[in-house]
């Protein structure tokens, strides 16, 4: 047996004139957390709908656990756990009723699979009689995950599970995913938030229906082709426009109150940038060497695609 769990090749999907997917290929190994990172409109939801047999691709092939997403859709539907972008719970049903319902439609035995959701569900169990609509965002998310897991799926597909959820719940959610992974479940997750990339085993950076890069977060970050400096400042706008005028600069972008600048050639180093700034009266701002993050990489890939 191969250890590939989910596999896609040349997937294309158009909605009228809109090209949602422009030939996407990727493979996800068994038991890993694979992240599709990209902004709204990158094609993440379309891709997930194809993988969950909800949409037919216009071209290309995809399979999950060896089952073809078009031909074997009936069987696939028994082994997939899916959490669509919007929390797909019945708001007017209680926590308990939702769980029972989803177990029912998958003909799953709650007590038999309870160990899978125990850690997650225990946190919302005190509210078992509360209607799902009255739960906080974080609790809804836990319930939705419990419902997606109750039939013991082999592959879990989560479409933007952390959108609209606060930082604490987001952190807890990722901790849950990492525990689930240790139970051997393959997890595909999409997110528009770059900082979640490092929590995945491997990621694909998506934009405009294409995958710009994929690999482990470390691979992607270490492939960043430029030297990167970081400057802290209170005068972001002025400094930004100043640096963009400097020769030998590849790009300069805001990162909060910092500016990340990448240099185009070996001659431009910390010294040169520092001197340039001092010449224009920025004495407090000191450039320092920085390690590129996923967001730096994403921006770089986007610019590469725009010009190329």
């Amino acid at each position: 047996m191969t250890d590939i769990s989910v596999y896609g090749e040349g997937l294309v999907k158009n909605y009228g004139k809109t090209e949602a997917l422009r030939g996407i290929s990727f493979s996800v190994n068994k038991g890993e957390i694979f992240g599709f990172i990209g902004p709204d409109g990158a094609g993440k939801t379309t891709l997930f709908r194809i993988l969950t047999t909800l949409l037919l691709p216009d071209a290309g092939d995809a399979s999950v656990e060896g089952f073809h997403v078009v031909k074997d859709f009936r069987h696939l539907r028994t082994i997939l756990g899916y959490m669509p972008g919007r929390f797909s719970l019945y708001q007017d049903l209680t926590v308990e009723e939702n769980l029972k319902f989803f177990a029912g439609i998958f003909k799953a035995d709650i007590s038999k699979n309870y160990h899978l959701i125990k850690e997650i569900y225990d946190q919302i169990a005190p509210f078992a009689k509360r209607r799902a609509g009255k739960l906080s965002g974080g609790m809804k998310q836990k319930l939705a995950l419990s419902c997606a897991l109750i039939h013991k799926p082999e592959v879990l597909i989560l479409d933007e599970p952390t959108t609209g959820v606060d930082a604490v719940s987001r952190r807890e959610f990722w901790e849950m995913l990492i525990r689930l992974k240790s139970q051997g479940i393959t997890i595909l997750v999409s997110t528009p938030y770059m900082d979640e990339a490092i929590l995945c085993d491997r990621v694909a950076l998506m934009q405009h229906g294409s995958i710009m890069a994929s690999g482990t977060p470390d691979e992607i970050m270490s492939s960043y082709p430029h030297r990167l400096f970081k400057i802290s400042t209170d005068r972001t706008l002025e400094l930004l426009s100043l640096i963009r005028k400097m020769n030998g600069i590849h790009s300069a972008e805001m990162f909060g109150s910092d500016i990340h600048l990448s240099v185009a050639d070996a001659e431009t180093g910390i010294e040169e940038v520092g001197e340039y700034l001092r010449n224009y009266g920025f004495t407090a701002e000191k450039p320092e060497e920085a390690k590129p993050g996923i967001e730096d990489c994403f921006i770089d890939f986007m610019k590469l695609n725009q010009t190329g």
Binding site: G38, P39, E295
Partner: peptide
């Protein structure tokens, strides 16, 4: 929420 990193910076 949900915009690409370049647009987000232009926005800021």
């Amino acid at each position: 929420g949900g915009v690409d990193p370049i647009t987000r910076r232009q926005f800021w």
